[in-house]
């Protein structure tokens, strides 16, 4: 079966955003604008952090919302984007209630986690990890 990226314990997150930079490095660029994982404070640093990442739904609402079938189901849950079909309507973004579909402004296409697990190597505190599904 496939694997999925999971948030193991958000309480351990220190908000370093190393995972976001890691995700972005897959595209050989610096920064975090193409990251599929998002870390932000729960209303101030003192309250801790939320780690937002695709949950690998079995029946993903983002895929159902896509009018052109650009988001295809992935083995193990979640979706794979076929950029050639995507028309940039952003319906997938609206469809995800946890806000895990983000947007690549440059390409005008969604950014969705592919559950490769590259980011997990760079989380120093074991907040995120790959899980068998």
């Amino acid at each position: 079966m496939g694997k999925r990226l999971a948030v193991l314990d958000a309480e351990r997150c220190v908000g370093c955003q190393m995972c976001m930079f890691a995700c972005n490095r897959r595209f050989s660029s610096g920064g975090y604008s193409k990251s599929a994982i998002h870390v932000r404070s729960v209303g101030g640093f003192e309250k801790g952090f939320t780690v937002v990442v695709c949950r690998a739904c079995e029946d993903p609402p983002c895929a159902k919302a896509c009018p052109t079938n650009a988001l295809r189901r992935r083995v193990g849950g979640g979706v794979i984007l076929d950029p050639s079909r995507c028309i940039g309507c952003e319906r997938c973004v609206d469809a995800c209630v946890i806000g895990a579909v983000s947007w690549d402004e440059e390409k005008n296409k969604p950014v969705v986690c592919v559950h490769c697990g590259y980011c997990t190597r760079y989380c120093p505190y074991n907040v995120i990890g790959l899980e068998e599904v």
């Binding site: 220190v14 908000g15 370093c16 955003q17 190393m18 930079f21 120093p124």
Partner: peptide
């Protein structure tokens, strides 16, 4: 403990 952005040390 918290960290600066892009620093693993916290």
């Amino acid at each position: 403990r918290v960290a600066c952005s892009h620093c693993p040390i916290a």
